[in-house]
């Protein structure tokens, strides 16, 4: 998971393109290299912001608009900063009837974020997903790669608060 999140919209701040350039260099003359390049650059920078997309476009001799088309097509690419902890709330049928909607609300109560949003301190991102594939544990959530099932709303709140206490 991405740990390093770089500042971007902050105008004037220098962005270190070294990692991006190195990745692009590796794939320079490959055909169909766009997706692996985007994946690796996203891993290195946390998400794909406009300056980095421009840079990739220049390096790969492509159009940034075309690359942006690819980025917006795939769910795996992000154009907004993402939190350190990604909270995935399952909104599949089984979890829905078990009240997973309430868990999303709790995330909003705790961190003020809705689906797809990231908290201002870049700690949490909420993602409502269709099905995690663990219907037996409904309602179920994932925080990064850890799964929590059979949740009561207040259990979930407790878990979120524990994460909020963690350093960094």
């Amino acid at each position: 998971m991405a740990t390093e999140v770089k500042e971007t919209e902050s105008a004037g701040k220098e962005i270190d393109f070294t990692a991006c350039d190195e990745i692009c260099e590796k794939y320079k003359d490959w055909k169909g290299a766009t997706i692996p390049v985007l994946q690796q650059v996203q891993d290195a920078y946390g998400y794909l912001f406009s300056e980095i997309v421009e840079r990739i476009a220049d390096n790969l001799n492509m159009s940034a608009h075309q690359i942006y088309g690819v980025i917006t097509f795939y769910a795996q690419f992000y154009t907004q900063p993402r939190g350190k902890y990604i909270i995935r709330v399952c909104r599949g049928t089984a979890c829905h009837v078990q009240g997973s909607g309430r868990i999303s609300e709790i995330v909003n109560e705790e961190f003020g974020i809705r689906n797809g949003e990231t908290s201002a301190d870049l700690k949490f991102t909420l993602e409502e997903v269709s099905c995690i594939g663990a219907c037996g544990m409904a309602p179920v959530i994932m925080i990064n790669n850890k799964t929590y099932g059979n949740l009561k709303p207040e259990d979930a709140r407790k878990i979120f608060r524990e994460y909020a206490q963690l350093q960094g």
């Binding site: 421009e54 159009s63 608009h65 097509f73």
Partner: peptide
């Protein structure tokens, strides 16, 4: 793309949300 080779516009998003637009 094919004739002008500028690729100033592209398909963005997916499915019913698809639009023609520019990067960011």
């Amino acid at each position: 793309d094919e004739v002008v080779n500028i690729q100033a516009i592209s398909f963005l998003n997916r499915g019913t949300d698809t639009i023609i637009g520019t990067s960011f």
